[in-house]
């Protein structure tokens, strides 16, 4: 009896989360411009319209670049911090760990405002105005944590035994990193990187505050076109693409990292 109630509750919960997403996917093929429900006829014209839409394509490309950039920074910094925190003892170690994790919990709007004013008052006078790079830096602030968490968990679990064994067998530190440490971290890096990319890809708040003129990521493009009635079908298609593109890396990340995969932003 309890079992059936629990199952029903779970089904309802999952339905509540995924039905609207499914609706977006279905509507992207809905022949009716005002999305009458149930759909009367099936069409792919919105998909081809979206494909021809230069704004959407530019925005997609910008998002990919921003995501890759933020992921690259996150991989390097996240790994380095994880090593520092896990392998060395130093003053303020716990504080550093907290400071790295904090941006994921900070409201995006606060991060956004802070980055905006910092960029305008400190970086811009140095000759580097806001543009794609500022978006990448903004995203990296909260992407670092996904890599950090994944790498830290891996380092914690595997300990230093394997590296000691490698050194004991005659491997130099460089050989140990190449043959033992890196392969050990590979799946954690992949999982952390994929999550970082997914986080960056659908970010809108921090992006709004850090994007320079003319820089439009996909989520921002959607937001700007959402309330233009004649763009609505195309927005639907783009949203559908976003769903697929976001699900993919997260699904992959879960598969490579197993259950300990790191934090998500929402």
């Amino acid at each position: 009896m309890t079992r059936w109630v629990l199952r029903a509750v779970m089904a309802f919960g999952l339905f509540f989360i995924y039905a609207p997403l499914l609706l977006v996917l279905v509507n992207s093929f809905n022949g009716d411009r005002t999305f009458g429900w149930p759909p009367h006829d099936f069409t792919t014209q919105w998909w081809s319209a979206a494909w021809r839409n230069g704004g959407a394509r530019d925005a997609l490309w910008t998002s990919v670049k921003a995501g890759l950039g933020a992921t690259a920074i996150a991989l390097v910094l996240g790994t380095m911090v994880a090593f520092a925190v896990q392998r060395f003892k130093f003053f303020g170690r716990d504080t550093v760990s907290l400071l790295v994790v904090l941006p994921i919990a900070l409201p995006g709007i606060v991060t956004g405002i802070a980055l905006d004013s910092a960029w305008r008052s400190v970086v811009a006078p140095l000759g580097l105005g806001k543009g794609l790079f500022s978006v990448i830096v903004g995203h990296a602030t909260f992407c670092v944590v996904t890599v950090y968490n994944n790498v830290l968990a891996r380092l914690r679990r595997s300990g230093v035994n394997l590296e000691e064994a490698s050194a004991d067998l005659g491997a130099s530190p460089a050989q140990t990193f190449r043959y033992i440490t890196f392969p050990m971290l590979r799946s954690a890096l992949l999982a952390g990187g994929l999550l970082a990319f997914a986080l960056s890809f659908d970010e809108i708040i921090v992006t709004t505050f850090t994007a320079g003129p003319g820089i439009q990521t996909l989520p921002i493009w959607i937001f700007n076109n959402l309330f233009r009635p004649n763009q609505a079908p195309v927005v639907n298609v783009v949203a559908a693409v976003l769903i697929v593109l976001s699900v993919l890396p997260v699904w992959l990340a879960q598969r490579v990292a197993g259950p300990e995969a790191g934090a998500s932003r929402t």
Binding site: L162, A165, A167, L169, G170
Partner: peptide, 14 residues
């Protein structure tokens, strides 16, 4: 360790 002519069998095998 990598410049010493000794090898170790670890408790947890490693």
């Amino acid at each position: 360790p990598y410049e010493r002519d000794v090898n170790t069998v670890f408790q947890d095998y490693a």
